[in-house]
Amino acid sequence: MTDLIERPDSDEAAAPPPEETAPVFKPTRRRRRDYGAMLGAAWIGVVVIAAITANWLPLPDPNEVTDTFSKPPSWGSHLLGTDSLGRDTLSRCIFGARVSMAVAIGGTAMSLVIGVALGMIAGYFRGAKDGAISLLINFLLAFPPLIFLIALVAALRPNLSTLVFGLALLGIPNFARVARATTIAFAEREFVTAAKALGARPVRILTRELLVNVMLPVMSLALVVMATLVVAEGSLSFLGLGVPPPTPSWGGMLAAGRESLSEHPHLMFVPALFFFLTVFSFNRLGDWARGRVGRESSL
């Protein structure tokens, strides 16, 4: 723009803009609360707390076999019914949540730490480090996600820790890409140049100056990755390649429920509902977080 008039005024004689011209911000009058995200947060909160405290909750043992087989959900004992072996569905769902949440939170945390570290190093130093890290990321991305997991569980016997590890590997490229792009964008900013001029070492700049800015978009990504990992773990369990029985998992319950779909559809619907609500909640929270990040930084 070659606008003469619009040019920001640097004349000292010019008065600061008086009160009247200051932008009138309407305090969030029209921004309705995001009830979907709030409900999502509530659901995740309940699931996480239930998964942690499952041992102390008044629940029957998830692997305790009773003689009420495939009872549909109803009030009284066995709120969500029992499975074909007479095990309590609610209890299995809550203990199954341990697998899902361990994967979602543990796997995401692990891939976040590794991915962000790699991405920031690549984005800050560029050059050979960037090339090597990019190659590693591309290598991880060279496998279709589920095939990658299948190959991993084939090599490492499936148990909770190898699952978390495998799923964490799956999430690394996402975090690395976002962290790298954000680091590149911020590395040119004045506050980074200033820190460099003051003699700050790269480690200090990366952790003190850049990390905060990188974390903002990364956190909203983390919620989306959690949703993906819950689904990925579900897929493996559904295929019978997840945590080995009898440890309950939602995917395993769903696979078992499929066997008696026409007679006892609730065996499928209950775990399906847990999946739906959990993934939906993570997605809504992710949308909400992305909306907030979009407003606070223009990245």
Partner: peptide
């Protein structure tokens, strides 16, 4: 789309089987 996004394919597949097949 937001409902489908929250329905993993293995859940959707079984649901479709239940509705159309069963």
């Amino acid at each position: 789309t937001s409902a489908t996004l929250a329905t993993p394919s293995f859940v959707l597949g079984i649901l479709l089987v239940y509705v159309f097949g069963v």
